[in-house]
Amino acid sequence: MSTLEFALVAFVLATGLATAVLRDVLGSIIAFAAYSLGIAVVWVVLQAPDVGLTEAAVGAGVTTVLFLLTIAKTVRPSGERTLERLDLPALGVAVALVAVLATTLGALPPVGGAETPVATSEVTSYYLENAYHEAGVENVVTAVLAAYRGFDTLGEAVVVYAAGVGVLVVFQREVFA
């Protein structure tokens, strides 16, 4: 693990912890935006720029604005304490969940390893060899998303559409106003 990666992980952990324990919601939201930005850089470091772009735009950008709009309708908690009081049962559940997930870490291949199932899969090599001829685009991720798995992407788009319809139904409006 290089120095950059170590610093990134430390930053993400610190901002994630700050998001959880800060009592002021505004501070929590800012910490969460920083956390998303850190995660976005992690995606780039892990060679997944498409995901990093999404994380930066949605997680660090739009979600933060929507959260800020929401808390503008609330009041800030009174009191002097900076940090949230520790909720022991919730902490226990969180630690147990992390422990369960951590048991799978040993089964994961090293990052960027040549022997990972993804790298050696026939499907991967098929896409890498044929995507440009068959789909006509140079970005294999886009070829898979929009051409090979276009039906799935239609489903994703419809999910976004359905989310908007759901908001309108909950607000009992016909337009977003």
Partner: peptide, 9 residues
């Protein structure tokens, strides 16, 4: 189509 990105981003 040719670099990172797409409709969602």
């Amino acid at each position: 189509a040719d670099s990172s990105g797409g409709g969602f981003q």
